[in-house]
Amino acid sequence: MNNDQNQSNMSPENSAHLRDLLISRVIDGSASPEDWSSFRILAASDAEVWTDLSDAQREHEALCEVMHAATAIADGVDLPGGSGSPLVFESRVTTASRWGGWAIAGVVLLGWFTGTISMNPGQTNTGPTAGMLPALQQASPDEAFGQYLNAGQTSGQVVGEMPNQIVIETLPLEDGTIEVTFIRQVVERRVLDKAYREAVDEFGNAVVIPVDIQLLKTRKSQ
């Protein structure tokens, strides 16, 4: 039985399957002389197969191009680097990149304004805002933030600023600079005479419930 007869005897499912396979093999450059022969026979009765082949070829090439560019980012991701020690690598990962983008996190930390208050209570602000303070309206955001931290620490409201900033997003800009969106975390302390906690009622609605301060005291002392 020749190829022509074989194909005409096929069920529609098998015929569709063969069509897919032949197109795919041609795209991959792995079609054998027999495959080409079958393809020509198929095309003689169904000219659309040429259009499908051309579309499939174009889509495959476009996809390969996208994937090649997308996966190129992997070339910049190494294992432990020069250190050769997985432990060093791990420690770097867990500290700097917990929130992603550790390279950028490093850049942010290095370029950070040096006059912020640390969590160490003995350390005070020695940055450019110490001494002569500009009026708040004329202060730059960093100066104003420094003033807030100083004033807060003096009054006891601010405990300190967390040393690590949380990087949310990094975007390279067209002019070659990088936009970094990040969170600065300040630890504050308040003294309250009432407190509430969030809870959910039996219908699933969010509710606030007063906290029994006496009970809290008892638990704390136990």
Binding site: V77, V93, G100, W102
Partner: peptide, 14 residues
């Protein structure tokens, strides 16, 4: 983010 995930895989491989 693809790069973040690649770094996590690298860490897990180590």
């Amino acid at each position: 983010d693809l790069e973040d995930l690649l770094q996590l895989v690298a860490l897990q491989v180590c």
